[in-house]
């Protein structure tokens, strides 16, 4: 189903959310990236990625959580992973999309012999890429749920992730993520994911709140 949903990832990245209003921002893309990187690289735990979902209001007054920025670190040790390798067809699809995205960014026509694309596109890389096309309306999805309830969500381990009613959590589990965290803030949500089981950390929660206190 992921293949079907993401057949046109390139177009989606170009066109999605064109009608969305931006809230007044106290940050820019560069500082956001630095904050995400600081959070992940400075953490004691091994996080695979961090995403900032930014809240905004569309023309009809609906609150939307959309992609703000993300930092992908990757897995510490891919050999420890116990997920089933994706099929050859799925890998071909991912590589094709990656070539198109490379072409979109570089402006150079896609080539079937692109070295960096020949490397397997891992499940967590793909999950991170697909996340760029997603948004959550009116409390939908794991980030939306955290934002609307103003309560952090911490799902350590497969059982906890699978017990979530949110599709994003189930999708994450399918792609090998074993911990998902969503921390709501005034103007968005910080989401963290890991292929390892990581239990609740007050230190991390505080770090997020300090790092993403944009008005300071």
């Amino acid at each position: 189903s992921t293949t079907t949903h993401n057949n046109d990832l390139t177009k989606t990245l170009n066109n999605q959310q064109q009608q969305q209003h931006q809230p007044s921002m106290f940050f820019n893309q560069e500082t956001l990236q630095q904050r995400l990187q600081t959070l992940i690289e400075g953490a004691r735990e091994s996080w695979t990625y961090a995403i900032f979902w930014q809240s905004s209001v569309d023309m009809s007054g609906v609150t939307i959580l959309g992609w703000g920025d993300g930092y992908y670190k990757g897995e510490e040790d891919k050999l420890k992973r116990k997920t089933t390798p994706s099929s050859a067809i799925e890998q071909e699809h991912r590589k094709k999309v990656l070539r198109e995205l490379n072409s979109l960014i570089s402006g150079v026509p896609a080539s079937s012999s692109d070295d960096q694309v020949d490397e397997e596109v891992t499940d967590t890389e793909w999950f991170f890429l697909v996340s760029m096309t997603q948004s959550f309306v009116n409390g939908g999805g794991l980030p939306g749920h955290a934002f609307y309830s103003s309560v952090p969500i911490w799902l350590p381990g497969n059982d906890r992730i699978l017990s979530s009613p949110c599709d994003r959590a189930k999708q994450a589990q399918l792609f090998g993520l074993q911990t998902m965290v969503c921390i709501p803030l005034a103007n968005g949500v910080v989401e963290l994911g890991s292929t390892e089981v990581i239990f609740h950390s007050l230190d991390l929660m505080n770090k997020v709140r300090v790092l993403f206190n944009f008005s300071s």
Binding site: Q16, Q17, Q29, D69, L104, E119
Partner: peptide, 26 residues
């Protein structure tokens, strides 16, 4: 409104660049 696709493209460009580095050092 154009800021959103631009933000995504910036994220994507960064992701692809870092992936390139990871592949080269693998």
């Amino acid at each position: 409104p154009a800021a959103v696709p631009q933000a995504r493209k910036a994220s994507l460009a960064r992701f692809l660049e870092k992936r390139k580095e990871r592949v080269m050092h693998a």
